[in-house]
């Protein structure tokens, strides 16, 4: 059985339909990359999976159980953790306090403050610093660590490389590689297509709230994704006025 299945999900922001009938599933241990232009609905889709947005229609199934109506804090207890876009740290609180908050749901597992600090050694000297004063890379590490503290089965990563220097992005992905090989199921949103294809088993390209392209990352050509990304495979592309 799939760890997560999303069926015909529709999510609205007021008048705007951000996700328009998306279906996909992900097996335990898989890594899925979501790509797509800004406004394609990736962040909204992740937030709906995490329970921060209530969908208008469709279902979210975790391990076969319908969790569509379950609020976000209970989903954390069920093993779904989101590293939100823009990190969303509690900036008035220290690194350690942010990490400890991740433990609120009380899921059993072997993640602890010590283990997070071992995974992200750059956080060690900053343990008691307010997160508002950290560098971008340190903030991102704290945000990922906070999600890991809940011992998730499904980790949702929303643009973890946003605003970081290439060097720091490499470091973040190096530590993610450890998680991927340890069997954590991951859905990640990533702007850099090459990186997205190289870390994932499966890739979904979204366009205007829909799945424009879905397939295994191996053998997916850059050209194919580019066409889906801009919607150039559609009929309309042919009718450009000369």
């Amino acid at each position: 059985m799939s760890l997560l299945a999303v069926e015909n999900l529709v999510v609205r922001h007021g008048l705007l339909q951000a996700v328009r009938g998306v279906s996909f599933s992900i097996e335990r241990g898989e890594t899925l990359a979501l790509v797509g232009a800004n406004g394609a609905g990736k962040t909204t889709l992740l937030r709906a999976i995490a329970g921060a947005h209530q969908p208008t229609a469709g279902r979210v199934l975790l391990d076969g159980a319908d969790i569509t109506g379950v609020p976000s804090h209970k989903r954390v207890g069920m093993g779904v953790a989101l590293v939100p876009e823009g990190r969303k740290l509690f900036v008035q609180m220290t690194v350690e306090e942010n990490l400890l908050l991740g433990k609120t749901a009380g899921r059993p597992g072997d993640w602890s403050v010590e283990r997070v600090l071992d995974t992200f050694p750059n956080l060690k000297p900053r343990r008691h610093a307010k997160t508002g004063h950290l560098s971008g890379g340190e903030q991102q590490a704290t945000a990922i660590g906070r999600a890991l503290m809940s011992n998730p089965e499904l980790l949702l990563l929303d643009e973890v490389s946003l605003g970081l220097s290439p060097l720091v992005v490499d470091r973040v992905y190096a530590s993610l590689q450890g998680l991927i090989s340890s069997g954590t199921t991951i859905i990640l949103v990533e702007q850099d297509l090459n990186r997205a294809l190289s870390v994932s088993d499966k890739v979904i390209c979204m366009l205007e709230g829909r799945v424009a392209l879905e397939g295994p990352s191996k053998g997916m050509s850059r050209d194919e994704v580019t066409k889906a990304y801009f919607g150039l495979h559609r009929k309309s592309a042919g009718s450009v006025p000369a």
Partner: peptide, 12 residues
């Protein structure tokens, strides 16, 4: 416009 294929129907 973010939605490129719509834009391409009008833009020269």
């Amino acid at each position: 416009e973010h939605i490129v294929h719509i834009l391409l129907q009008v833009a020269e």
